[in-house]
Design a protein around this nucleic acid. Structure first.
Lengths: 277, 277
DNA sequence: CGTCCTAACAGCGA
DNA sequence: CTCGCTGTTAGGAC
């Protein structure tokens, strides 16, 4: 469940089920995703109570009271699933938490992910989360803030958007439609963007991510209850639609290499040199 | 006098004239090229005696006894000139040293350069010189050492050769002929170089730099006595010979952009893809 | 024809 | 579709 919409939906669902419940037990099957020995994490978590559950960018923040926060990053896709009872849930997982009312949740990583426990008053010393830029849908993240963030920056706009230290929550799925929505080619140098393009990009970030959250996040990911998201294939504009017609102009969507990632673009609506073409 | 041959010639000439002489006075006209306040450098140098004068890469090492070393980098070209008497020498300079027998020298930078004074026992803490790779003509810098240096390195061979932390002394003048002499395109990835090419490159480094020193260094630079070097235009193979015929095959030499520097190459003798062309 | 610092970029490994 | 480390590359300042 990689990007901001999936994490936002998940945090809301988890909060509804888990908030206020004491932790009865913790099972660690993959110690290397932790930031401490398994016993230490189990001991610290046991008996404490689940508090607020929020998301920032692609990270989950699970308050564990008193005084701790569990930080979860699902890496390149993972299932984070609700368990209705101790006997419920998948057999294979890397991390499981059981609560004193019998409910709980499991985490199964596809590839790498993190489950880090830190003291809440030491959150700022957790580098992976403390260096995150503002969450892309944070109310404080205004158009003005976005303009400031781009000031004096070099490099390609797509790389900027994917860098979680600039802006947290956008990954290489939603970024395709975000750029398409603003008519911006992923390899456009930041310096070449007009004020109007920057404004359009900001609007597109909000529009795409909010639409996805509204529909329950991406169809190819599971929510807390194991159900696919309601933001379905036909709601994507260009992402993963190689060879299909652009919804605006009908041009065939192409897949291109952009650095180490791939990009789906409409070559007509997202020209690399807007003034010359 | 930017590169190794110029510095080697200069060091030898300076040593011949200055070695053993006490310093009578120092005049600083451009404090920002120093690593300390002018008064401090003047006070430290005055009364001391010039010792050994050597070069490493593009740096001059002037021993100032007891206990100090004057480190000089001439930047993008500069005149470092002998003065036969206190009234001799150019009117315009940034730094002047007068010795007790009336001789001396001046430094006039074209652009930026450095005159740094350090205690000899603290030379290792002078980052700009302590991080230099081996001087390209150092006897210890063997073919074996060159092979080791290239092991596992990525990037383009020209950038590697110009990086003073790998190998000290090669700049963007001699590098053209060095690469041509080995038949290697400046943008060849290091990893793509065959063992034979690496050996040829090592030989070319020595051959080109030693030939330049033998002739008294580049004609477009002045030596300690203000005379141009004897390594003249017709001794360059491809460097600065855009449009002229390659001395080996007659193909027209071309000037290409290689990152932030320019390169002169023979497109026939220095193919970018040796196996495919 | 110089050096440095910094940000951006690419590959690898977990 | 993750992250961080490392070495390389590119731009601007001096």
């Amino acid at each position: 469940m990689p990007e901001l919409p999936e994490l936002a939906v998940l945090a809301r669902q988890m909060a509804r089920e888990l908030r206020g419940k004491p932790i009865a037990g913790v099972d660690v099957r993959q110690p290397k995703c932790l930031n401490m020995p398994p016993e230490q994490m189990i001991n610290t978590l046991s008996g404490k109570r689940v508090g607020e559950i929020t998301s920032k960018g692609k990270w989950l923040f699970v308050s564990v009271e008193p005084g701790h926060t569990l930080l979860i990053n699902l890496g390149m896709g993972a299932d984070l699933l609700y368990c209705a009872s101790p006997s419920d849930g998948p057999d294979v997982y890397q991390f499981r938490v059981d609560l004193d009312d019998g409910t709980g949740f499991t985490i199964r990583f596809w590839w790498f992910g993190y489950v880090h426990l830190v003291r809440t008053d030491e959150l700022r010393s957790h580098a992976m989360t403390s260096t995150l830029g503002p969450s892309a849908l944070d109310p404080d993240f205004t158009l003005e803030a976005f303009r400031k963030l781009l000031e004096g920056r070099r490099g390609m706009i797509k790389a900027f958007l994917l860098n979680q230290r600039n802006l947290a929550g956008i990954g290489n799925a939603y970024v395709h439609d975000i750029l398409f929505g603003a008519g911006i080619h992923p390899q456009r140098p930041i310096q070449s963007l007009s004020a109007a393009e920057i404004d359009a990009l900001y609007a597109s970030v909000r529009r795409v991510l909010e639409a996805a959250i509204h529909s329950g996040a991406a169809y190819y990911e599971k929510d807390f209850y194991g159900r696919p998201g309601g933001y379905t294939e036909d709601q994507w504009a260009v992402g993963y639609r190689e060879g299909e017609p652009c919804p605006k102009c009908g041009t065939s969507i192409v897949k291109i290499k952009t650095g180490s990632t791939s990009s789906f673009i409409c070559p007509t609506c997202q020209p690399l040199n807007p003034h010359t073409s």
